[in-house]
């Protein structure tokens, strides 16, 4: 056993091989998706698959300019997705940060139940909320608008975001806040000058998770939007129609949905994973 391997009893290369195998298996559908999206029409569904072809971006351009089944282009759907997801992330963070801070205060710490209860709402199945949301949104005339998705998305993302931020706040030694108190800071200044900067990695984590969840959401988007606020996951399934599936368009659209998230995670990965290396104590 080496220090690099946690597979007790297994030599390092065995563990590595297993990891590579798992990675490969996970990559197969993604690679297939990308390849298919680059195929010209006609060779997308051959059996066995065609491996030699002239790569083309015609699927991408046609999807972006026309879309399928709907009155708007897929480019518009991507824009809607972005607007709704970013809106949801902003709302989530704006509510989650003060909520998490409140939960770490002495007055709240005693009732441990509050935080557990907040997390337990995460288990709430969204499907149960669809019909009431639909009726409410219909009554206030909000169907097919951005807020009708942003607000429920934020509501469903809040528990996990609060939970992440709360544990991050609790990992900041209380003495750091006390030092600021003695240095003459009031509560607002402590939040602004001390906690907010230290909380940024956790905010990034919570933001990314919230972004991915909102970006991929399908059920509420399908039920609560028609065209103007329709998001891309709903658009993708429209490539499967009554008279067959446009595989080239569908895979191109899927790639375009996946790409922003992949880029986002790659860029923020180090912030998200490493957090802030602490030097506060000892």
């Amino acid at each position: 056993m080496t220090t690099h391997s946690n597979f007790s009893g297994l030599p390092r290369y065995a563990g590595r091989s297993l990891l590579w195998l798992a990675l490969l298996l996970a990559m197969v559908p993604i690679v297939f998706l990308v390849i298919t999206s680059l195929k010209p029409e006609g060779v997308t569904r051959t059996v066995p698959p065609t491996w030699l072809f002239d790569p083309t971006i015609e699927n991408y351009s046609s999807v972006l300019s026309t879309g399928a089944g709907s009155s708007v282009t897929f480019g518009r759907l991507l824009f809607n997705s972005a607007a709704v997801s970013i809106g949801a992330v902003i709302l989530t963070i704006a509510v989650a940060v003060p909520a998490a801070y409140a939960l770490t205060l002495k007055e709240f710490r005693r009732s441990k139940g509050v935080s557990s209860w907040i997390l337990s709402t995460y288990m709430f199945p969204p499907i149960v909320a669809v019909i009431p949301l639909f009726i409410i949104a219909g009554n206030i005339g909000a169907i097919d608008t951005y807020p009708v998705l942003i607000i429920p998305y934020a509501a469903f993302n809040l528990p996990i975001a609060i939970w992440i931020l709360r544990s991050s706040l609790e990992s900041i030694p209380i003495e750091v806040q006390e030092a600021a108190l003695v240095d003459g800071a009031n509560r607002r200044q402590i939040v602004w000058h001390i906690l907010t900067p230290l909380l940024m990695p956790a905010v990034a984590t919570a933001g990314i998770i919230s972004l991915i969840l909102s970006w991929n959401e399908f059920l509420l988007a399908l039920s609560l939007t028609r065209a103007a606020a329709k998001t891309s996951p709903v658009g993708v399934q429209e490539f499967t129609g009554l008279y067959g599936t446009q595989w080239g368009n569908l895979t191109a659209a899927s790639c375009m949905i996946a790409a922003p998230i992949v880029v986002c995670v790659l860029v923020l990965r180090r912030r998200v994973v490493s957090g802030l290396a602490f030097g506060a104590v000892k």
Partner: peptide
């Protein structure tokens, strides 16, 4: 605490991790 004109050194120092030494001292 801020109205008592005291300064405190903590056992674990409780430095502000995101600030430089100068910023810590000048906070």
């Amino acid at each position: 605490p801020k109205d008592r004109d005291i300064a405190m050194v903590f056992q674990n120092y409780a430095l502000y991790p995101h600030m430089t030494v100068a910023e810590n001292m000048g906070f």
